[in-house]
Write a protein that binds this DNA or RNA. Structure first.
Length: 506
RNA sequence: GCCGCGUUGGUCAAGGGGUUAAGACGCCUCCCUUUCACGGAGGAAUCACGGGUUCGAAUCCCGUACGUGGUACCA
């Protein structure tokens, strides 16, 4: 038990990396770092039908953005390379054969059509999904039913076959899951899973066991959807004679839809208007784009924090954690058993917190592209001041433009009606007088405001009568930081210009 | 259908035999801001249900309901 901790994240490159996937990465990463261990990225690309170009590259990008980079990966290499299962294809067959020779697996010659036929024939109301289990296997074409000579002949003739595990009858498989405690399964109820496919590729079941063994994985974390097949994996570890090196298991709870029920899916994001993937993902076949948290304007630290708290907490009231703090505090036994519904409002709250805490100089380069995207060339010093003024009302990165565009370009007045109704000659005179006095005004927000106040009093007005009009003239609507800060920032000419423009339409 | 796993406010959740059942998000009310936010003060839970065990159960046991996952030559 003194082995160095080694964990792995093993995605299949079939599309975008979604919330649950990133959280699995995160928990692996935190566990590894907490224990001074290694974090391995292994690509499980054994299903050639589901190969999606670019998906692997995309995973690297997501991990990089999240700051959860593996110690070993197909990209980085490492002592157990290759880390891509398709490149490890050759080694699985020998283990499959070892299992057959020991009587724990067998060759099956049933074609996909045979299987389909069997399922439709055996299907009843009471048993809607017939399994290829210990009972069924005696009725199928495999090396447990065919004479050995025929089996050899078939194989020699190049007949396609798969290798299936021979599930024992009536055994109870028990193990202690790090998050669920003791769980148990009756082997009679588990089917004879395919281990090696007709194309020579292993299925997940064989590959995960062989590779975890070969790569010295000590702790295997994966989604809860794998729990029902855990007994197959446990048996494989035993049959292959590696029981002593078997990793400890932890099956992580699922992330569920915010409304209704079920696993959170990419469709829910589209339907409810929030991202589900870490980064933008474009399906190369359909060209369909699914938005990511990154592009939506989330900070990676916030994104990580959100995910960490979705299914785990350290028992204190703390909610905001840096990655380092998470590494320090994380423990797998405080991971919840139940699935959690994703709450986008709370996710935004986290991002808002991170934006408030992030030093403005670090925000400048992050906000710049959003401003540049609007065709505005920004001066970093000016942007810095704008950010200081508007950051507290920004939740996502694009909000900086929404909340601060009037610092860069003359806004369109969208709430003119709010002042038009109560507009009169007296107010008009006030603004004309104020503008005229601006030339000699000292250009600082407090001085400007004092000057403004004096004039308000001198003209027998109430400040409230002209504050809102001024704001709308300068900003376009009823929002934004203190109005004299805006005056100070945009300067005399621009201030006059905006007031004059407004005066024309009032 | 069968098997596994789960169930504390709308959501995330603390608490795991005796508590006024934390805290956060969201929502509502008020205060502060002559805008919008921020900030501050309040408001809202018969701990899924039914049985036990116990002096005492959200906490332990059993059952039910509900949810969720699996039941592919997908992972």
């Amino acid at each position: 038990m003194s082995r160095k901790v080694r964990v792995r994240f093993a995605p299949s490159p079939t599309g975008g990396l979604h919330l649950g996937g990133v959280r699995t990465v995160l928990y692996n990463y935190l566990f590894a770092r907490h224990h001074g261990g290694d974090f391995v990225l292994r690509i499980e690309d054994t299903d050639q039908n589901r190969y999606v170009p670019g998906a692997e590259e995309y995973i690297y990008n997501c991990l990089q953005w999240c700051g959860l980079e593996p110690d070993e990966s197909p990209l980085k290499g490492g002592p157990h390379a290759p880390y891509r299962q398709s490149e490890r294809k050759a080694q699985y067959a020998q283990y499959a054969k070892q299992l057959v020779d020991a009587g724990h697996a067998y060759y099956a010659f049933d074609t996909p059509e045979d299987l389909e036929d069997m399922r439709s024939r055996m299907k009843t109301e009471a048993n809607p999904t017939p399994q290829y289990d210990y009972k069924m296997r005696s009725h199928m074409r495999n090396s447990t039913t065919l004479p050995q000579a025929e089996v050899e002949q078939l194989i020699q003739a190049g007949t396609p076959y798969v290798v299936r595990i021979k599930m024992p009858v009536g055994e109870t498989i028990k193990f202690t899951d790090l998050v669920r405690g003791e769980v148990s399964f009756d082997t009679s109820l588990v089917d004879d899973k395919v281990l090696l496919k007709a194309d020579g590729m292993p299925t997940y079941h064989l590959a995960v066991v062989v590779d975890d063994y070969l790569m010295g994985i000590t702790h295997a974390f994966r989604g809860e959807e794998w729990l029902p097949s855990a007994p197959v994996h446990l048996l494989l570890w035993k049959y292959l004679g590696w029981e002593k090196e078997m990793p400890e298991w932890a099956h992580l709870p699922l992330i569920l839809k915010p409304d209704g029920h079920g696993k959170l899916s990419k469709r829910d994001g589209e339907r409810l208007g929030f991202p589900v993937f870490a980064m933008n993902w474009t399906d190369p076949k359909t060209g369909e784009l699914t938005q990511g948290f990154k592009e939506r304007g989330f900070l990676p630290e916030a994104f990580i924090n959100i995910l960490a708290m979705l299914g785990w907490n350290d028992g204190t009231e703390q909610e905001i954690y840096s990655l380092d703090e998470l590494v320090k505090q994380f423990s797998i036994d405080r991971v919840h058993k139940g699935g959690a519904k994703f709450d986008y409002e709370k996710a935004k709250w986290f991002n808002h917190q991170y934006i408030q805490r992030k030093p403005t100089e670090e925000l400048v380069p992050l906000v710049t592209p959003y401003i540049a995207d609007k065709g505005v060339t920004v001066d970093a010093g000016y942007l810095h001041k704008v950010i200081d003024l508007v950051k507290e009302r920004c939740t996502l990165l694009p909000d900086f433009w929404e909340q601060g565009h009037f610092f860069f370009t003359t806004p369109e007045i969208t709430e003119l009606q709010a002042i038009k109704d109560k507009w009169n000659e007296q107010k008009k005179t006030f603004f004309e007088t104020w503008m005229a006095g601006l030339d000699s005004a000292s250009w600082a927000h407090d001085a400007l405001e004092a000057n403004f106040n004096e004039l308000v009093a001198a003209q027998g007005l109430k400040k409230g009568d002209v504050m809102l009009p001024l704001r709308i003239m300068l900003v376009g609507g009823k929002y934004g930081p203190h109005v004299f800060n805006i005056v100070e920032m945009i300067g005399k000419e621009e201030t006059k210009k905006r007031i004059e423009n407004a005066l024309k339409v009032l």
